[in-house]
């Protein structure tokens, strides 16, 4: 059976959410992507990805209380599920396997 891996943006979003640990809110995830991966993601794409990850069961969220800075609207705190961690690990393993033994190629090309 073929294994399914999350897409590139999906992986980045999951990793960003993990990096943020206890403060994985949507705007912060967006900023983290911009900071660490130099990737500007429009809000439309970001929410769509978050929805998709949630649908696939890699991500879940809970509601937090509102603050006045947000006009009294409540917050969603995202966290990566066990399944999410598993697929990330699997994809890392797959990538590492694929990278294995290629060091000489890159050394070659650098020269």
């Amino acid at each position: 059976m073929t294994k399914q891996y999350p897409g590139e943006l999906e992986q980045m979003v999951l990793l960003a959410a993990l990096q943020l640990r206890e403060s994985a809110y949507a705007p912060d995830i967006g900023r983290e992507l911009e900071k660490s991966a130099s990737r500007r993601v429009s809000r439309g794409a970001l929410y769509a990805t978050l929805d998709r990850l949630e649908h696939k069961g890699f991500l879940r969220w809970e509601i937090e209380a509102a603050t006045s800075e947000r006009g009294g609207h409540r917050k969603r705190l995202f966290s990566v599920t066990a399944t999410g961690l598993e697929v990330l690990k699997a994809s890392r393993v797959a990538l590492e396997n694929l990278w294995n033994g290629l060091d000489d190629v890159f050394v070659e090309s650098r020269r």
Partner: peptide, 14 residues
């Protein structure tokens, strides 16, 4: 739903 509220809030904050 909650999702809408949270998105509205995110926008507000940003």
């Amino acid at each position: 739903g909650f999702r809408r509220e949270a998105i509205l809030g995110d926008f507000w904050e940003d």
